[in-house]
Design a protein around this nucleic acid. Sequence first.
DNA 1: CCACATCTGTAGTGAACACTACATATTTGG
DNA 2: CCAAATATGTAGTGTTCACTACAGATGTGG
Lengths: 200, 200
Amino acid sequence: MGMGRPREFDAETALDQAMEVFWRHGYEGATIAQLTEAMGINPPSLYACFGNKEGLLKAALDRYTKLRNIWMDEVVAAPTARAVAERMLMGIADKQTDPANPPGCLLVQGGIACGTGSENVPFELAARRAQNEDQLRDRFIRARAEGDLKESADPAALARYVSAVSVGMGVMASSGADREALRQVADVAVQAVEAQSARG
Amino acid sequence: MGMGRPREFDAETALDQAMEVFWRHGYEGATIAQLTEAMGINPPSLYACFGNKEGLLKAALDRYTKLRNIWMDEVVAAPTARAVAERMLMGIADKQTDPANPPGCLLVQGGIACGTGSENVPFELAARRAQNEDQLRDRFIRARAEGDLKESADPAALARYVSAVSVGMGVMASSGADREALRQVADVAVQAVEAQSARG
DNA sequence: CCACATCTGTAGTGAACACTACATATTTGG
DNA sequence: CCAAATATGTAGTGTTCACTACAGATGTGG
């Protein structure tokens, strides 16, 4: 039995293009016509490979979070809680204003609110944002155990805080804030973490 | 010449219902069918009164920001920069988890990214968020002049920071964060403003 | 070279969308 | 009571959407 005609496009390259469309227009705002054009394929190829529009989004999110998690590993490798927050937020300021990508964050731009039939999309994005928050929380738990954070500090609250600031910066970036403006926000935000550090 | 048949519905009541639909589903996710059903009217009445879907959104935003500005006046009436930040963020934590409304903030849920033909919507929302940021900035400028904030403090950056945290909290609320979780975020966030205060 | 499996491009499909034509109903001014 | 003006409900309009049937192309195993 033969193995059939091989695929003529590269799935990961196509996903990168789809990611950009979702990033710029959101899940509901992105049309199959825009997606297929950006990916350089026709609808049947898209559906054969990714199932449907939501499957394509999930695949794009998988790719996005995979790259992002590599970066997050570098972030939590910083020596102190303050350094972690600074590396995270300054990195966010730069990444969210990188002209190579649409402004903001795919995990926010993808779709915070959706219509009937797509209620699953906001959940999907939230779950992936929560992964990063968990990583931060674990790192802050360690920081407190190491005496880097005060005993009174709440690692979960700190992680939620840093995550919230990241999201807020993403929305600002998507509405036109430039890199310097975001860095100023990050700079202020880090001071709250510093206030929870043992040697403030 | 007669003045015609009078309108049978109350425009402001109808707007409140429309607001809720946009809030929950976003601009693109909200359908005219859902809007008219919630408003208790038929499409021709909607179009006669508000022009089109985008006109309805703008009218709903006008009403939303009108109520919100009243609250913001109370916020900036707080005696110190720290108290302003606390009142703002704690109030946000409560308002964004008020069961009387959909979770989160209409100015975010309304549509951060939109498809072709609705590019104007994210701008419209961003402009209204910027109004609140300007109000905060002016208040922080005064705080610095009064010696409440350090000379080295940047009022514009602080305002942008508080605004970013608010937005981030809104996204968290919309994805299920409860009131207590948001209050913890607010509590941490206020400490950054405190660090910029003269008597920290 | 043949049977089979998978991909590709063309050209649609039904459904849902924002929006509206039109006839009818309800008001005011004379 | 009539004419002008505006609102309402019914029943659509054309367009766009996500998705797919189908025929032909391109590969593998025997």
